[in-house]
Structure formats: structure tokens, C-alpha cells
Design a binder for these strands. Structure first.
Length: 907
RNA sequence: GGGCGCGUAGCUCAGUGGGAGAGCACUACGUUGACAUCGUAGGGGUCGCUGGUUCAAUCCCAGCCGCGCCCACCA
């Protein structure tokens, strides 16, 4: 016998262990079956499970578990990401507690420390995913720095370099002066800050007293100015073009150039050009062949160079700003200082303002790689199905499709991707430099040496590029590197392309776009057919949760308190396409209650022997109530399955919630009680079997979202011959109901009858409650004005009606209405409750008045509609007919209530 | 500046071209042998505003107001 409540923590641990022990998560168990593959978005090894992970992985698990139950060869490929900068920061912080910096250890020993740290603490998140119930194939767990994945990285780098899609170039990059590394455009966050706009007067060369005013938000960079630009068509400056002005403080003469970049509307119309410290100015500088003077060092402090007066040497950029502004002021060259809000670039990891800095870095020519990735999604709208394999594997779609536009816009404006990082933890770039600076890009040092020997005619010592690759470089290969690429493994052939990628929108550019480019380039096939983009789980203020903000909510706490199933169900019910998830604990508690409700329904079934019967065919049911259950169960199953098919996770969850609680528990089990205790043997047997059958369907349908409690109940309720629910079966085949019932059979009619009974009972209960009839009191029910159908139903379902409405009797009214009876109208009959002794006449009068008032509103509205000739002429006939039917019913109901009111008044 | 999205019950949110929904909260009643992590019933909304299309708009279109996010090099 089941306990009254479920001990979630116990069954969770037990079932997870059992599933693993039986290899239930392993791919490849059904070599004949169609594969179904999802690769996990690899969490950072430094990470711990946050709500975003919980949501992301719950959704993946739902799809994988459903596919597994459907009998497909399900592979959920797990693993973790080495997360270069994040991990290095974590280990550096730990070193700092020992008073050490990474340079004290040296590169090799530092990297050893990182591996050591990974071995000790890197598994945290994997353990947490298991607590959540994630059914990943852990035997295939990968890490982006594994040997195999590292080989894939080197191979891709070398290949792309050979194809001139990777190159080394001196360009402006985003330099993080705290972390001392370049970062990509995507790792730069723009934040609005309140700053100032300084207007500085640059003396025009050879013309005493004439100045060219420029406005700037960054006066400290003026020492690197190499020109002032004005618009070629700006009449104010026409005579100055080609002349020079004198850079204050520095004293250098710099040219005044005409360039369309200068906007006459902005600032003073003349703009200082600092090509080494501003992306726009860099372009202007290139166009005009201007020198590029870098005045900052790696810490964003002023360099000790000739162009920078000695008194500024070594000053931090902001100290330098103050000093320079003060000097300009003293020189009388500061024309204005205004408050000004502007967007400043911040490093997303370090949180400091990054500097555009001119340096040598490695870049991917993303523009070329983007072409196929653009076409792939552009074709996703075409509806012709996938008979053509060539095409099928070159297309993918976003769900919801709104993300397509975002993806395309970014792809079409894609910039070169800076992939080199000046840190130590990561994939070191496979490039070696010869003494003459020649670069050898090879997968191994041996190959580089060999080529160097050939080139120089003798063995020559090479120096390896110290930089490592952007972490997202290896992530971009994840869908195929985890399957063994570049080896031609059976797994690669079988599971690539994957079916679905489930991810948050925050990494569409970082990750999805790059996987698409790399997958298409190296395998000629998209890495996934569908990208489901879910919302972010935000904190109560609607803020994105992130480690650096420290506003992360720990899902493990909720799991401890309410169970993993409840958390999973909550996230699923909240996973509406295109809307953020704001989590509330009350909601989790509510779905914990749902799990308990399910548990107790199962307990009831168990107590009453309502257990699954092998080989039971619900199509053989005779009892209308059981047929009604079968129909409703199948409707719910179909709806839930369809919802998953279309990634409407919330609809899937809600459908099953309402069916389980609102239909199965609230009505069916109540209907079943009298049949189980009072019915004849055949009735009892059928009801037990039908209830057991329906509960089994519920457990199966809920298993993807609530795996633990459903497996526990599945095993508790029957001898399954060793079969685990995790292995299915899934109760729906495609769009087909498992036991399709002919719509024109008696079934449909009987289903409608039970619905009528439900309405009748509900109405009697409402009247009783409203008139304060004691809940325990049994009162008689008389049906007045009953049509034939209503009389038949009353007779047929007499037992159910009297039990559930707590009636002493339920008969058609013969003769006249007893004095002081309460009346209510429903379709096909008037309900009469002769309970004069217990009612309050005033209350009853007001109740009837209220009911009539409600009907009047409806009747009025319907009448207006029906008397509109245009409505009758243009609306669909079935709509008109339905409206007329309603009108008739309401009219009848109103007449009956009015009569009742009159009778009451006569008392 | 460009793009996307959101404004529906006290709160968090579903939903639909033809009678406004859920969960929680709230009110009343309830020891009915599955379940008080429960049951029965109830109160509560001019579906942001203004126009338009339509026989019919909360839903489609336009504009406006408010809010959020993403992208962008604007001094």
C-alpha cells in the first residue's frame, strides 16, 4: 500500500540510480530504431545549476524521454565546457588566497592547477543535472578540452587557415585592461553611463586667434590624434580642408581632412581622429593614410612614448583625463563642458571599460562562413517536405520563428571574429613562429618543425603562439566533435545532424550561429534541424540571472523542498514561447501538490484494485462512464502529444494537469466509487480495468516531465514484468489515438450524456451551497419540464446523480410543484429542490433575481446579434444556428426562473 | 537610430475573429475511508488608450501611451 504522501527525495535517488544501472539512458540500444539526438548546451565546468540550466535541461529531458518512450534510439549527448576566461578567473581567485598570481606559477603549473581544480570541483554541475533527473547518456560525457575535442579544434583551425578563412591581422580589437586579453565584439556589453562632453579648441596652424573646435567624450585620447575631420560639404570648414591645426598639449600639427564620417549635425561638426583608439577613427585613418598612434598600455595607462608628454606617463586613463582637461582649461582651450549620456563598452566578464586597441590577433573570416548559414534558415519557410536529403540537411528552423530575423540580421552584418585570447586556459593556438616571423600553422609541433626544417633547410627552433582560442571556438564544433569528428565514427554517421537544439536566446550569436557555420562548412549538413529558443528565467526584478550579478537562485533548494518533479513541472508550465519566465515559489508548491494529488489518485486505485489489466482493450468498455473516461483520456493524450510536437511545453503541462486533476480525479474517480462498491461484477471489473488503464496513460504521458513520481507509481501499481516506464511505451502514435473510437458510435452520445450529468450535479451543488443547505443533508431532486432525453438520463445515471449531488431521490416531477421548492434551469429540464424547510426565502429570491439578471444580459446580446440581418446573411450558418440555439435555451431558462420567482412570491 | 516583444482578475501569467481563462491569494462551508499538499461553492476583469477593417474585435490593421530586451561607431 502506498503511503499517504510521496517521499520525493527517496524515490528520486532510488530511481535515478536504477535507470542508470539498467543503462536506460544509453544510446544505441535499438540499432534498428530511428535515432533522436539532442546535444546539451555544455554548461561551464565552473558552473553550478541555476534556473536557466534547470529550464533548459528540463525541456531537453522531456523531448528525450518522450522519444525514448516512443521507441526511438535516443541520444542526449552531455558534457561540459572549459569556459576559458571564467575558469581561469576562478582558479586565479583561489590562487590569490594563497597570495599567488598565475605568473608566479608559470603557464605549465598554472594549467596543472586548473586541471586539478576541475577534477575536484568541476563535476558539481553534472551531479546537479542528475538531481534534476536529466537522462543524459553519461557514458558519452565529453569535455571541450578532451583529447578528441582538442584534436577537432586543431584540425578546424588548421583547415580554416589553409582555406584563408582564419588569418592573423593587425586591427583594432576590444582590449580588456583588467583581464589583459582581447575579447570579441559579442563579449562587449554596452552600458549607458552619464559622462561629459568636452569641447576643445584646436588652434589653426598659421592663423593667430583662429580655432577649430572639436567635441569629445574622451579627451585623454587626444594625445593620439592624428587628424581632425570635417564633412566635405560643410561650408563652415571648406577653407580649412587640407590645412593643419595644432594639437594642444602635444604641440603636434595634424591635418584637417574631409571625410563623410564627420557629421555636420553632431558636436561642432569637426571631429578629432584618433585611429588607434576608436573604431570609426580607425576607418577614417585608413582612408586617409593617417598614422596610428597608440598612447595606452595594456592596463589602459598612458604610455611612456615621445608623443605623450612625460608628466602624463603611467597615468591611468581617467587620471590622464583629469590632468589633460585641467591643462586645457589652464590654456584657455576648453570651450565647454556639458553633461552627456553615452554608451560605454564593458567587458562582460571583467566589468571594466574595454579599450579599442591596435594589435595583432587571429580572426575568422566569418563573412564567408556565414553565407551557407544564412541560406539554411532562409529556406526554412518552404513547406515542401524532406524527401530531398540534400536539401533537408541544409535547412533548419527556429521555434518560435521570431528569432529567425534576429539571427539573420546579425549574420548579414557579421564582423570578423577575433578568436585569440591572451590567457592560458584553453586551446593553445596551433601556430609556431620561425625566427623570421614566418608562421607555421599545423596540427602538431612535429609537423610544424618538419615544415620549418624544410623551409629553412635545417632544424630550426620555433616559438609557439602563446594565445589560446576563444572558448566559443570549441563550442562551435560541439555537435560533431562530441560524436568523434574528425574520425569517421559510427556515432557521427548515425546521430549527426541532431534533431533539436534547445537553448536560450542569449547565446544565439555566441553559439547557435557559430555551430551553424562550422557544421555546414565541415560536414556539409546543419548541426540541428530545429532550434527551440526558450526564454530566460529572470529574477523577481526581471533581471537576467548571472554569476557576476550574484542574483542566482539555486534550483537545488527548490528540489530539496518540493521535489525535482515539481520544479520540472513548474518550469515546463511556464515555458511559454516568447515570454520570460519569472519564477515564484508558490507555483512550485502548487505543482508539488499536483504530484501529491496524482499520488493519492494512484493510492485510491490501488486500494480499489483498479490496476492495469494486461491486454485490456478500452474499446470493449460498456459502461458510459468508462467510455467517457476513455474518450477524455485519448483527447488529452492527443492534445498533450501535439503540444510537444510543436514545442508548446506549457500546453503539454496544462493539458495533463487539468485532465488528471479536473477530469480523472474530480469526476471520474467519484463516478467510479459507486460502481466499484455497488456495481455488479462485470461493472466492477470493467471499471477497475478502465481506471487502471487511464491511470497508466496518465503516468506515461506525465513521465517526461515528472519522471520520478510516475516511475514510482507505475511500478507500484502493477507487475510490469521488469519493464521500466522510462522505456515506454508512449500512448500516442503520431496523430492517432491508441484505440480510435468511431465518432458516430454510441460512444459520442454517451460521452455527451456524462457531460450533462456533470452539469446537473454541478448546478445542484451550486444551489445547495448558495442556499446554505447543510452539506450532509440529503434532499430530493425533481426534474420539471424534462424532455425525453433528460428523463432517460436521469433514470440511467440515477445512482451517480444522487450520490454526487447528495440527494435522497431524483425523479421527474409528476403533478404540481411542492410549495416552497427551489428551482434552477438547465438544458433539457428545470431542477426542483423541495427544501422549503431549510431555505431562506429572501436569499432564494435574491438568488433567482441574480440568475435572471445574468440571463437577461446574455439574451439581450444574443437578440441584438440575431436581429441584425447582416449577421444572418454573412456569418457562417453553424454560427447562426448555435446562436439561435443559445437564444432558445436562455429564453426557456429565463421563463422557468421567472415562474419560480412568482411561485416564491405567492408563498 | 534600427529590430523584437510585452501591457488580460489583487499577484504571476495562459488564450481565442463569434458566449472572458488557469494557478496562487481572497470569502463561505466541509472529519463524505484516495488526497486538508484536500473537497464543494463563491466574489473579482469596460482583455493599456484611440481609430480602422468586419455582420462580429480582447484577438486582425494603424496610431498613441507605458514597460522590457537585443543590436548600432556616433563625437
Amino acid at each position: 500500500m502506498l503511503d499517504k504522501t510521496c517521499s520525493f527525495s527517496e524515490i528520486e535517488a532510488a530511481w535515478y540510480a536504477r535507470w542508470q544501472a539498467e543503462g536506460a539512458f544509453a544510446a544505441g540500444r535499438h540499432p534498428q530504431a530511428q535515432p533522436y539526438t539532442i546535444v546539451i548546451p555544455p554548461p561551464n565546468v565552473t558552473g553550478s545549476l541555476h534556473m536557466g540550466h534547470a529550464l533548459n535541461n528540463t525541456l531537453q529531458d522531456i523531448l528525450i524521454r518522450r522519444a525514448r518512450m516512443q521507441g526511438r534510439d535516443a541520444l542526449w549527448q552531455p558534457g561540459t565546457d572549459h569556459a576559458g576566461i571564467a575558469t581561469q578567473m576562478v582558479v586565479e581567485r583561489r590562487l590569490a588566497t594563497e597570495g599567488l598570481g598565475r605568473r608566479d606559477l608559470g603557464r605549465e603549473r598554472f594549467i596543472e592547477r586548473v586541471w586539478q581544480w576541475k577534477a575536484e570541483s568541476g563535476g558539481t554541475i553534472v551531479g546537479q543535472l542528475k538531481r534534476l533527473g536529466a537522462s543524459c547518456d553519461w557514458s558519452r560525457e565529453r569535455f571541450t578540452m578532451d583529447d578528441g575535442l582538442s584534436a577537432a579544434v586543431r584540425k578546424v583551425f588548421v583547415e580554416l587557415h589553409r582555406q584563408e578563412l582564419i588569418y592573423r591581422d593587425k586591427r583594432l580589437v576590444n582590449w580588456d585592461p583588467l583581464l589583459h586579453t582581447a575579447i570579441s565584439d559579442l563579449e562587449v556589453e554596452s552600458r549607458e553611463v552619464r559622462g561629459k562632453l568636452w569641447t576643445i579648441r584646436y588652434p589653426v596652424e598659421g592663423e593667430q586667434g583662429r580655432f577649430l573646435a572639436v567635441a569629445t567624450t574622451r579627451p585623454e585620447t587626444m594625445l593620439g590624434d592624428t587628424a581632425v575631420a570635417v564633412h566635405p560639404d560643410d561650408p563652415r570648414f571648406a577653407d580649412l580642408i587640407g590645412r593643419r591645426c595644432l594639437l594642444p598639449i602635444a604641440g603636434r600639427a595634424i591635418p584637417i581632412v574631409a571625410d563623410p564620417h564627420a557629421d555636420p549635425e553632431k558636436g561642432t561638426g569637426a571631429v578629432k581622429i584618433t585611429p588607434a583608439h576608436d573604431f570609426n577613427d580607425f576607418e577614417v585613418g585608413r582612408r586617409h593614410g593617417l598614422p596610428m598612434i597608440n598612447v595606452l598600455d595594456g592596463n589602459a595607462a598612458m604610455l611612456a612614448i615621445a608623443e605623450v608628454p612625460e608628466r602624463f606617463h603611467g597615468l591611468d586613463r581617467y587620471e590622464a583625463r583629469d590632468a589633460i582637461v585641467a591643462e586645457l582649461q589652464a590654456l584657455g582651450l576648453l570651450a565647454a563642458v556639458e553633461d552627456h549620456t553615452l554608451m560605454m563598452p564593458y567587458g562582460d566578464r571583467s566589468g571594466v571599460v574595454v579599450e579599442p586597441w591596435l594589435m595583432d590577433q587571429w580572426f575568422v573570416d566569418a563573412k564567408k562562413l556565414a553565407n551557407d548559414a544564412i541560406e539554411a534558415v532562409e529556406e526554412s519557410d518552404t513547406e515542401e517536405e524532406d524527401d530531398d536529403d540534400e536539401k533537408k540537411y541544409k535547412r533548419f528552423k527556429f521555434v518560435p520563428s521570431t528569432w529567425k530575423k534576429t539571427y539573420l540580421m546579425w549574420m548579414q552584418n557579421i564582423q570578423p571574429w577575433c578568436i585569440s585570447r591572451q590567457i592560458w586556459w584553453g586551446h593553445q593556438i596551433p601556430a609556431w613562429y620561425g625566427p623570421d616571423g614566418y608562421v607555421f600553422v599545423k596540427e602538431t609541433e612535429e609537423e610544424a618543425n618538419a615544415e620549418a626544417a624544410e623551409r629553412y633547410g635545417h632544424p630550426t627552433e620555433l616559438e609557439r603562439d602563446p594565445d589560446v582560442l576563444d572558448t566559443w571556438f570549441s563550442s562551435a564544433l560541439w555537435p560533431f566533435s562530441t560524436l568523434g569528428w574528425p574520425e569517421k565514427t559510427p556515432e557521427l554517421a548515425r546521430y549527426y545532424p541532431t534533431d533539436v537544439l534547445i537553448t536560450g536566446f542569449d547565446i544565439i550569436f555566441f553559439w547557435v550561429a557559430r555551430m551553424m557555420m562550422m557544421g555546414l562548412h565541415f560536414l556539409g549538413k546543419v548541426p540541428f534541424r530545429t532550434v527551440y529558443v526558450h526564454a530566460l528565467v529572470r529574477d523577481e526584478k526581471g533581471q537576467k540571472m548571472s554569476k557576476s550579478k550574484g542574483n542566482v537562485i539555486d534550483p537545488l533548494q527548490l528540489i530539496d523542498k518540493y521535489g525535482a518533479d515539481a520544479l520540472r513541472f513548474t518550469l515546463t508550465a511556464l515555458a511559454v514561447q516568447g515570454r520570460d519566465v519569472k519564477l515564484s515559489e508558490a507555483r512550485v508548491a502548487g505543482y508539488r501538490n499536483f504530484a501529491t494529488k496524482l499520488w493519492n489518485a494512484a493510492r485510491f486505485c490501488q486500494m480499489n484494485g483498479a490496476l492495469p489489466v494486461a491486454g485490456f482493450d478500452p474499446g470493449t468498455c460498456q459502461e458510459p462512464v468508462n467510455r467517457w473516461l476513455v474518450l477524455r483520456t485519448q483527447e488529452a493524450a492527443l492534445k498533450a502529444n501535439q503540444a510537444l510536437e510543436h514545442f508548446h511545453f506549457n500546453l503539454y503541462a496544462e493539458t495533463l494537469y487539468h485532465f488528471t486533476w479536473g477530469t480523472f480525479c474530480d469526476w471520474y474517480l467519484e463516478f467510479a466509487k459507486p460502481m466499484l462498491t455497488g456495481g455488479d461484477a462485470a461493472q466492477q471489473a470493467e471499471t477497475r480495468a478502465a481506471a487502471g488503464w487511464a491511470l497508466d496513460r496518465i503516468l506515461a504521458l506525465l513521465h517526461p516531465v515528472m519522471p520520478f513520481v510516475t516511475e514510482e507509481l507505475y511500478q507500484a501499481l502493477g507487475d510490469r514484468g521488469g519493464r521500466l516506464l522510462i522505456n515506454g511505451p508512449w500512448p500516442v502514435e503520431g496523430d492517432e489515438l491508441e484505440y480510435p473510437v468511431q465518432a458516430d458510435s454510441d460512444w459520442k452520445r454517451q460521452g455527451a450524456e456524462i457531460d450533462w450529468v456533470v452539469r446537473l450535479i454541478t448546478q445542484v451543488r451550486a444551489v445547495r451551497a448558495e442556499l446554505n443547505v447543510p452539506p450532509g443533508a440529503r434532499v430530493p431532486l425533481l426534474l420539471k419540464d424534462a424532455d425525453d432525453a433528460a428523463r432517460a438520463r436521469l433514470a440511467r445515471y440515477h445512482g451517480l446523480i444522487t450520490t454526487l449531488a447528495r440527494l435522497s431521490s431524483a425523479e421527474p416531477l409528476i403533478g404540481s410543484i411542492p410549495a416552497g421548492a427551489v428551482e434552477d434551469a438547465m438544458d433539457g429540464a428545470t431542477l426542483v429542490l423541495p427544501i422549503a424547510d431549510v431555505i431562506d426565502i429572501a436569499a432564494e429570491r435574491s438568488r433567482l433575481g441574480k440568475e435572471i439578471g445574468k440571463l437577461d444580459t446574455e439574451i439581450e446580446r444574443t437578440h441584438r446579434k440575431l436581429s441584425n440581418p447582416n449577421f444572418r446573411a454573412k456569418a457562417a450558418p453553424e454560427v447562426v444556428e448555435a446562436e439561435e440555439e443559445r437564444w432558445r435555451q436562455w429564453g426557456r431558462a429565463r421563463r422557468r426562473l421567472e415562474q419560480a420567482l412568482r411561485r416564491l412570491a405567492a408563498l
